[in-house]
Amino acid sequence: MTNSPQTRGQISIKDVVKIYDPEGAAVMAVDHCSLEIAAGEICMIVGPSGCGKTTLLNAIAGFHSINGGSIEMDGQLLCGPGKPQATPGSDRIVVFQNGALFPWKNVIDNLMFGPLMSGKLPFNEIKEKALYMMADAGLSGTENSFPGELSSGVKRRVEIVRALMNDPSVLLLDEPYRALDSLSKSVMHEALLDIYAKNKVTIFFITHDLQEALFLGTKLAIMTTRPCKPKKILTVDIPYPRSYSVVTEKRFRDLMEETSHLVHEEAKKSFAAGEKEG
């Protein structure tokens, strides 16, 4: 680990606007959205389907351009006036909704991919690091398996470790556990917090599951339905390390009460508008 992780990965989203097809249908996906994420935070973005959360993530990652406002990371401009689209890089790595592990490479090759491409470390060191991180995440033994042979839960973990191999400042997670059943989910959550404890990166996590958001996050941003902007931002003041028993504690239930009607409100609006999930 190079510099102290808690000082990297601070994100400032300032007044961002995103309009799809400006000369045609002019669909506004993001409407003057502003959000501050401190370094080392787990920021959960909660909102109904299709509200534009993924657009925001894609803008940070550099897959989409923005039409207004700016996004900065650690004081450096990612995208903004004069530079409508950020450049994708290994300082902000995305874990995709449907998984993007390369099916034609086995687990160890997938993990080593990032560092091998940047070519800064020798092969043996990269392999050692990969095996170490695998053991840490409880993935030992799957080195030579191909993604097609693995369960969804294992694949997600591999993808997260693949991202972490590159020592990113920010992890961008786009509803990674959406397809898992609730039993696997709870196991994944604890695993993620475990990984977080060992590699303090900033996490930008999109979900529509309020319980998941409250369990994992330090900060919660509830988004309005399309076009999205933060409806309410609150801090989750439950201390780490959190185990799943936290879900039954009073503080947790208070927070759920505080937030669930807000989320439900937006969900109804989204349903009425017939939004297709992103």
Binding site: A61, G62, F63, P88, G89, S90, R92, I93, V94, F96, N98, G99, A100, F102, F113, G114, M117, S118, R162, A163, N166
Partner: peptide, 15 residues
């Protein structure tokens, strides 16, 4: 080929 694979590769620093 799914767009995600291209995006993932670019995120991971591939030219």
């Amino acid at each position: 080929i799914d767009e995600s694979y291209f995006r993932a590769a670019r995120c991971l620093g591939a030219n």
